[in-house]
Design a protein around this nucleic acid. Structure first.
Lengths: 355, 355
DNA sequence: CTGAAAGCGCTAACAC
DNA sequence: GTGTTAGCGCTTTCAG
């Protein structure tokens, strides 16, 4: 029993026990093509064969080499990311990246903070030979970007846009419904005086969120006082000012619904600073479920965007589109609507009893 | 002139204008092998040849297909990420992911929040045939993880650890120096009474940060009062309590240095809630430069970890190690120390004049 | 120093 | 339905 002379089994961290499609094929007694078909869920494989192959796959713990796969199928898609310090970037990359493996395509990313950088980044992506590109907000609403992509023969996909446009595939998010649901949640907790902090008017979701709030209030028969709606810019700082204004309203709100979590966190800080207990004296709600929502205390009740899942869908949609297009077909534009869910945490509670 | 019948030039988003190594070879009148050598900076290429090839590369805007490259060289490395909602995840993935392209290796990631998930994730990575794995804290300090990797013949790399260990490559971060620098910064602003909020005692950086703080204080000849140091858990909530305690100290600190940004944000909120102006009445400093630092107002003075660059280094180191190991060599363990930088923002200022 | 040949693991296209 | 044949773009190996 040599302790040191084993050669194949132990060569310092780079063994090659990797199971290939051929190993599976041999094990199952079929051709590698059949295994490939099974892996890709293609038709034209008999049930018996499929069972046998699947058994071998499990037995051997086979997992396909994604690199090889994307080399053969050669679908390459890119993404531009506008806010590298954004807390959502992690979820986005995680979703897109892992799905790109599963979908057998190569995924490239370029940062594009400013408009100029975005143009440059898209340029690099185009030179890398991508067939499609994922554009998150606010890039997804920029006609210039869309035009640039289309001119280069690259299929664009608008990610998390609030206003999808004809002719461009999109992952759409229902900001209206999210805001409606949150407002309704507050109402059902007994709140009537509900303050609202608006988002940056330049972003497409802002108006939709406000509309959702208004619709829910009207639906519940509550008249919205003018001083219950204050402007905001999606920044923490703007939330600070907005909240001070709100708390000075002629009839003070018992709940504040901010258009995003950063502003909601600010609202919570201001309210607590003024001696209010959250949620006993005042409820606070946010939107997005960004990390700050579960950082501050109490943690914020908010609306979650399933960024990771959305990114994965985007990759699936786009890679399919590119394949379609390559096979000469006309790409089928589609708009996928993603569900927003309300996450109830500690910052909201029953309206305080009237005194 | 058919408008619709063009076939090659415009086929709906999946053109193939991609320049390959062969195109370059043809253009330069050499074999593709020579181009490959030039691209990889190998020796054994005559200067004349190199010049010619480089000219062609530029002329054709050639950029190698990384997928093909990694298929040939077949280096696969993985990473486990412990905190999917972490604000650093984006930077980490961005750095690692992009570098993996440049380094010609395949990068896989698995989430591993709990210990159990981490084990499972590492298991999946091992089954995928990785040659090395990046372990961020706190996984990088877990003997169990390290053992599991090494048993499977996978080279581990400790990422951003504060206590590197012999025999395991690591990206090391100098928490001590970062804390020392920050404390010194506060002292140089005239502060003498500087409160400190400790980090989670279970994380390796916590002690180092406290040591750095103590050393700077001692170095400046300041006696640290017992009630200037309060326990914390790296959470916002723990920062809330710690700050209240600190502000009730027998001699109230004019500056608070929290072991991370979440707690510093809490400190800022509490201080402002009690009517103190930041930084006029009290300075607040954090550590990490996580997104919350530039979200809250005033923005936090903090210590930046260059996560993205560190992730890139990790990929370079690890892919080289795996290549070395595969070529039969003994992998060269190394510890790379990354620089932390102090980022001065609005939350710190001169000590208030004594009254 | 340079080139030709042989794959890496997988899938598209075509036979059977 | 299933197998065979060719590569994808690059690097490794081995001749010259």
């Amino acid at each position: 029993m040599a302790d040191h002379e084993e050669n194949e089994p132990e060569n310092g961290g780079a063994r090659r026990p990797v199971v290939t499609i051929h190993d599976v094929a041999r094990h199952a007694g079929v051709s590698s093509m059949t295994v490939s078909r099974v892996m890709n869920g293609k038709r034209y494989v008999s049930e018996a064969m499929r069972q046998k192959v699947e058994a071998s796959i499990r037995a051997l713990h086979y997992s396909p080499n994604l690199t090889a796969r994307s080399l053969s199928s050669a679908v390459r898609i890119g993404a531009l990311y506008s806010n590298p310090s954004s807390s959502n970037l992690g979820a986005f990359l995680m979703g897109a990246f892992r799905q790109s493996g599963a979908s057998g395509c190569q995924f490239l990313i370029e940062p594009g903070v400013t408009e100029a950088e975005a143009v440059e980044g898209l340029g690099r992506l185009i030179e890398s030979g991508i067939g499609g590109v994922i554009l998150p907000p606010p890039l997804c609403d920029s006609p210039a970007m869309l035009a640039m992509a289309q001119e280069a023969g690259v299929l664009p996909l608008a990610f998390a846009t609030a206003k999808p446009r004809e002719g461009v595939s999109a992952i759409v998010v229902d900001d209206y419904k999210g805001a409606y649901d949150m407002t309704w949640h507050l109402i059902s907790l007994g709140h009537r005086a509900i303050g609202f902090i608006q988002g940056d008017p330049k972003h497409s979701p802002s108006q939709r969120r406000e509309q959702g709030y208004r619709a829910a209030m009207v639906g519940a028969g509550i008249r919205i006082q003018d001083d219950w709606i204050t402007p905001g810019l999606f920044t923490y700082r703007s939330g600070l000012d907005a909240t001070r204004q709100l708390l000075a309203a002629s009839r003070r709100p018992t709940a504040i619904f901010a258009s995003n979590d950063d502003m909601a966190a600010a609202a919570s800080a201001v309210a607590q600073g003024m001696g209010f207990k959250v949620p006993d004296d005042i409820s606070i709600a946010g939107f997005d479920d960004s990390p700050i929502a579960s950082t501050v205390w109490p943690e914020l009740t908010t609306i979650r965007q399933p960024i990771s899942a959305m990114a994965a869908s985007a990759v699936v949609m786009l890679s399919n589109l590119v394949r379609q297009a390559r096979n000469g077909g006309q790409p089928e534009i589609s708009h996928v609507r993603e569900m927003l869910t309300l996450v109830e945490r500690g910052s909201t509670g029953p309206a305080p009893a009237l005194t």
